[in-house]
Design a protein around this nucleic acid. Sequence first.
RNA 1: GCCGAAGUGGUGGAACUUGGUAGACACGCACGGUUGAGGGCCGUGUGGCGCAAGCUAUGGGGGUUCAAAUCCCCCCUUCGGCACCA
Length: 829
Amino acid sequence: MNQAHGWRRNLEEKYNAQCIETKWQAEWDKQKLFSVKEDPDLPKFYCLEMFPYPSGRIHMGHVRNYVIGDVITRYKKMRGFNVLHPMGWDAFGMPAENAAIKHGVPPAKWTYENIAYMKEQLKKIGLVYDWKREVTTCSPEYYRWNQWFFLQMLKRGLAYKKASSVNWCPACETVLANEQVIDDGCWRCDTTVIQKELEQWFYRITEYAGELLADADTLSGWPEKVVTMQRNWIGRSEGVEMDFRISGSDMKLRIFTTRQDTLYGTTFMSVAKRHPVIAALVRDEEILRKINALSDDPEEKEGVFTGWYAENPLTGENIPVYAANFVLMEYGTGAVMAVPAHDQRDFEFAKKYNLPVKTVIMPDTASDRAVQENGPPLSVAFEEYGILVESGKFSGLSSAEARERIADFLEKEGLGRKVVNYKLRDWGISRQRYWGTPIPVIYCSSCGVVPVPEHDLPVLLPEDVRLSGRGASPLSEAADFVKTSCPECGGDAGRETDTMDTFVDSSWYFLRYCSPESNGKPVNPQDAGYWMPVDQYIGGIEHAVLHLLYSRFFTKVVRDLGLVDIDEPFGSLLTQGMVIKDGAKMSKSKGNVVDPDALIDRYGADTLRIFSMFAAPPERDLEWSDKGVEGALRFLNRIWAFVYKNRDILRSGGSDQLKHMAAYSPRASQLLRKTHQTIKKVTNCIERDYHFNTAIAALMELINETLSFSPSDSDENDLLRFTVKQVVLLLSPFAPHFSEEILRETGAGETLFNHAWPVWDEEIAKEEEIELVIQINGKVRAKTMIRAGLDDETIREKAFSEEKVQEFIKDRSPKKVIVVKGRLVNIVI
RNA sequence: GCCGAAGUGGUGGAACUUGGUAGACACGCACGGUUGAGGGCCGUGUGGCGCAAGCUAUGGGGGUUCAAAUCCCCCCUUCGGCACCA
C-alpha cells in the first residue's frame, strides 16, 4: 500500500506514454512475471509466435504478429492459465552471409548484434516473454541437436544421400527444396530456379506422407485454407502400377495410372525424356538427338517416337512408345499409358502426331451419350467417369467399379499392383552455404560415408572462414575444418562441407522452448509432455506448406524417437494478414515502411498496440493509417484525462460492495449495466475468434458512456471506481503499461497480471427495456420502448396501439402478425 | 484451367456463428464552441435522393421467406494457392 501511495503523488495530468512504459517494462522484467515453470495443478497454455530471422530491425509485420501473441498471453494469464510464451531467433541464413561478403563483418558478429538490438525493440513494444527460454539457432548448444537429429534419422534410414536433379538458385548459389520454389522462383530472392544434377542429403518426409495427410483431418484449429494447401501439396492418389512388355526386347515399361478403367483405350505410351528405357534401347543417334532437343515449354506438347512398341497386357495390342516433354520423371514411374480419348494431354498429343483415339468410356446419362455418339468427333477428351465400352469383359461397368475390378484382376494375374502415389517429394536439406548447421558426416576413402559419433557433437561451424561469395560450399575452402580423421579406421578423411537447410532449425524449436537447458537430449520428454502441443501458434500464411509441414514431419519423427507423445505440434493456428500501406505490402523497395521505433517514440507502445489490434481482425490484411494511430492515442488520452479529473474519487477507498441495480439512479444503473455488458462482449470477442477489433470497439463504447458520468454521491463514487477498474482490466492485454499505471490509481497494490479477468453478471447485463421495432410488410414503420420480457400478446397489442401503425393499417385487417420476442413485430397486410 | 477466400458509406471496419432496426467503433469531412491565431480539445451532424412525407441502398441477376448483408442458384470483379502429378 505504501508503494502505491508513493506512486499516487506522481500522477501526471498529461498521459506521458514513454515515461510510463519504461517504468513498467523495467518492473515486469524485474518481477519475471512471465517466467514460468511446469505446474501440473494449473491448466497450461502454450502461446507461440513464429520466431524472427534477426535481419537487423523489427518491422510492422513482426509487431502485429507479436502483439497478437502478447495479447493472448496476457489474457490467458489473467484467466488463470500457466502460460508459456517464449521467444528466440531463427539465426542461421543467407543475409548474415551476404552481409559478410559485402561489408566484411563476420556472420556471427552481425547476427548477435542484430539479436541484441531487436531484443530491445521487442521489450519496447511491451511484449512479455519468458526470456530464460530464449533459443538462438546459430549457437552450438542449439545446432548440435540438429546434428543429433540428423544422426538418429540416418540410423533409421530417414536421412539418405542421393544424386538427383535438384532446384538450384543461381543467385543464392544453393539448392532449394521443392517447397522452397514458388512459381519457378526462389522463395527468398525470387530468382528463377534452374535444375541441376547434384548429390544431396534428403530427409525422407515421404515416409510420413500418409500420416501427414491423415492427420491433416485432425487440425480443426487451423484455417481450412492452410490444411487444404497441405493436402494438395502432399497430393495423394490411388491407382495401379503395371508393366507393359516392350516388343522385341526383354525389358518392361512400368507405368502408374489412376485410370485403369481406361486401359482398353490406350493407343500409345509416353515416357519422360530422361527415362532409363531410352538410354537402354534407343540406338539411333538421330532419335536421341531429337529427344534431347525436346522443349520444356509447358504450353506445347512435343514428342519423339522411340522406334519401339509396347504390348498392352490386356489386349495384346502393340502400341508405339514416345518420349514426351510433358511426362515427369519425378512422379510415378516416369512413364504413362496414353489414353487420348480420356486424357486431355494425351488427346492433344494424339491430334498432333495423328495417333488413334479410342473411346472406352461413355457418359452415363442418356442425353450426353447421344451427343457423343451422333455428334462431331471429339474436340476435347472426356475425362469424367462413365460407363465402360469396348473393354472386353469389363464393358458395361461404371468407371468406379471398373477401377476396382481391373486393379484386382491385374493383381491376380500378376500384371500389376495397387499403389498409392504422392506428389510430396523427399526434403532436400543440403545447402552449399556457410551460415548453417554442418552436416555431421565424414567421408573416408576406405570406409565411405561415416557418421560423426554422437559424443563428438557438435561439429562446430568454424568462425574464421573467408567468404568470397564465389563458388559453392564455402566450408570446402576451410582446410582445417575439412581435414579430419575417420572415426572408424582413423585414417585421413574429409568432412561434409554442405550445411543444413535452415528450415531444419525451425522444425523443432518449439520443442526446445519446453526445456531449453536439457542436456542429454534435445527435449526433455517430461517438460514437453507438460507443455506440448502449442495451444496457439501465430504467424504468416507464407509458411502454409514450408515451415508448417516440416514441423509436422519433425514432430512425428521426434515422437517415434520416443521424446514426445503427441502427433501434431500446433493445436490452433492463426495466420495473420499482412500490413499494407498505400495498397501494397510494406517493403523497403516500395518505400512505404513505417518504423515501429519512431512510432513508439512519438505515440508510445500502447498506442501502437491499440491501433494494430483495432484496425482489422488479425487474419485480415491491415491497412496502415497514420490518422488511425492518432485516433488510438486520443482514445487513451480521453481515458487518462477522465481518470485525472476524478482522481480524488478513484483514490478514496470506498466500498467494493456495489448496490443492487434498483438502488441506483437510472443514469447510474445504466452505466453498471453497460459495464457488465462490455465485460461480456470483450470476453466473447476474444474467446470466440480473437477479434480484438470488436473487443476494443466495445471498450470504446463503454468509455464514451463513462466520460459523461459524474457521480453525485458515495454510492456512485463506488460505481465509478468499479467501472474504471473493469475498463482498465479489460484494456490491459492491449495497453498494458497504460492499464498498469491507472490500476494503481484505483487502489491496487499489485500488478495487473495477478488480477483475475473480470466476470459479468448475466442478470445485471440484461436490458430492462428494449426498443420494439414495428414493421408493416417488412418495412420499419415505428419504434417504441417496451419492458423486456413481455409476452407475445402484450407486445402485439403495444404494436397495434401505435398511432403510426394505425395510420398504415387504416381499415385493412392484418393477414398475419409475426412477433419476435424482444425484437420486433411484423404486421402483414 | 482447377481450388479457395473476399466484395457493405469518402476510408478502415461492424452486424453473417443464430435470417429480424444495415453501417457499431474509428478515421475523414462539415458546422459550432474554446483560442490572439493555428494546432489541440469539446459539442453537433454525417450512406444516397428529397423541403418534407417518404423512397432507396450491402458487386450484378434470380430464388426461398412475413422478413435476406446473412440461406440457395447463376454471373461479374479482386486477391491468394496449385498448375502438365498421369
